[in-house]
């Protein structure tokens, strides 16, 4: 297999087969928040940026600091610190470059730091022992997978807005079941990458 096809398969795997929400079950709480379609797209892109940057930074912290000094036990604290710092930095940049985005997102990106998909992908990368390139791709495609998931969920939620959902199932229960049915459809990607 050539390098390019291996990389393509890795990307397809990260976006679809091992989708952060529907297969790895990370960031479900965040993805499940009801949002309008436009908000979902902007939020998803913001998560994608934070996830890519944290994947890269956490890789650097892991390979250049923690591993050589045998301090892997500090991984959780170190990675959390990196994620918080990256999120704060992203918030600063976005509010300078795209102030209208910040308005849509209630002027705060900090909830992204609490999205367990961001920290989760960083830890997955460290455990898999990826090289720099794969860690970067894993972060980027994990983020794209999250974007795909919340956009699909937003579409389904908009359809559900007018549905006659029975009272006890309104809101969260039907949202979780919808996510489950989408995850059922995603099982079809099994075996691809």
């Amino acid at each position: 297999m050539t390098d390019i096809s291996r990389i393509l398969l890795f990307m397809v795997g990260c976006i679809f087969t091992h989708n952060v929400v529907f297969d790895r079950m990370l960031g479900v709480h965040d993805a499940g928040q009801p949002r309008r379609f436009e908000t979902s797209v902007i939020y998803g892109v913001a998560v994608c940026i934070v996830m890519t940057l944290s994947a890269v930074c956490c890789w650097a912290v892991q390979t250049l600091l923690l591993a050589p000094m045998h301090m892997e036990y500090l991984q959780i604290i170190a990675f959390s610190l990196v994620v918080v710092a990256v999120t704060a930095l992203t918030q600063l940049c976005v509010s300078k470059v795209k102030p209208e985005w910040m308005e849509t997102l209630d002027n705060c990106l900090m909830p992204i730091a609490a999205n367990c998909a961001v920290l989760g992908i960083a830890i997955v990368n460290a455990e898999a022992g990826y090289t720099f390139g794969y860690a970067l791709l894993s972060g980027l495609c994990g983020g794209l997978g999250f974007l795909l998931a919340i956009v699909l969920l937003a579409g389904v939620y908009e359809k559900l807005e007018f549905a006659k959902v029975p009272e006890p199932f309104k809101g969260m229960p039907i949202a979780v079941i919808s996510a489950g049915l989408i995850a059922l459809a995603f099982i079809g990607f099994k075996g691809i990458a």
Partner: peptide, 22 residues
């Protein structure tokens, strides 16, 4: 071509059902 399941029709239509609102 690539998947684990021999027939993809079921999953393919379900996935596009999910994408239909978009």
């Amino acid at each position: 071509k690539f998947g684990l399941y021999p027939e993809g029709v079921t999953f393919a239509i379900l996935l596009m059902n999910v994408a239909t609102p978009i």
